[in-house]
Amino acid sequence: MTTLEAQIHDKSKCAAGLKAAAAILEKWGASVEQATAILRISRSTYARAKRRDPEWQVSLDKDQFTRISLVLNIHAALRVIFDNPENLYGFMAMANHNTYFHSRSPLQIISNGGILALYDTFRHLDSLRGAQW
Rank of each mutant, 00 (worst) to 15 (best):
Y100D: 00
S105I: 11
A16F: 08
S103W: 10
D53K: 04
A77I: 01
W28K: 05
K11R: 14
D126H: 14
L39C: 02
S127L: 05
T99P: 06
I41T: 00
K11Y: 10
D10W: 03
I38Q: 07
I38N: 06
Q57Y: 07
I24W: 04
P106W: 05
R123V: 11
R129M: 00
R104M: 14
H9V: 04
K50C: 12
S105E: 07
A95R: 15
N98A: 15
I74M: 15
A30H: 03
S42W: 03
S127M: 08
A15C: 11
Q108C: 09
R48H: 10
C14V: 08
F122E: 01
Q132L: 09
I8K: 09
Q108G: 09
S103R: 12
S44A: 07
L118N: 00
A47P: 00
K19P: 00
E5P: 03
A16I: 08
H9G: 01
D53W: 00
Y46D: 05
I38W: 02
I115V: 15
H102A: 15
L88I: 00
G113N: 04
F65T: 03
E55P: 05
F101N: 06
M1Q: 11
R104H: 14
W28S: 02
A6H: 07
H124P: 01
H97D: 14
Y100W: 03
S127I: 03
A20N: 11
T121G: 06
S31I: 09
A21G: 10
A131R: 12
A49D: 04
T2H: 12
S111Y: 03
W133R: 15
D126V: 11
I38F: 00
G130Y: 00
A22L: 13
Y89N: 15
E26G: 06
L128C: 08
L72V: 03
L25W: 06
I8E: 09
T3H: 11
K62Y: 10
G113Y: 04
I38H: 03
V80Y: 06
I38Y: 04
Q34S: 14
A6E: 14
K27A: 13
N112A: 15
R104V: 06
Y100V: 01
W28A: 07
Q132D: 04
G130V: 05
R129D: 01
L70S: 05
I38K: 06
S59Y: 11
G113K: 06
Y46C: 07
E26Y: 08
D120S: 12
F101Q: 03
F65D: 01
K27Q: 14
N87K: 07
D63E: 09
F82T: 11
T121L: 06
H9K: 14
A93W: 08
D120M: 10
Q108R: 09
L78H: 05
S105V: 10
L25S: 11
V32D: 13
H75C: 09
Q64S: 12
G29R: 01
D63Q: 08
S111F: 10
E33C: 00
L70Y: 13
E26T: 13
H124L: 06
K27T: 10
I8F: 08
A23K: 04
M94C: 12
R104A: 13
S127F: 04
L39T: 02
W56I: 11
D126N: 15
D61T: 00
A76L: 03
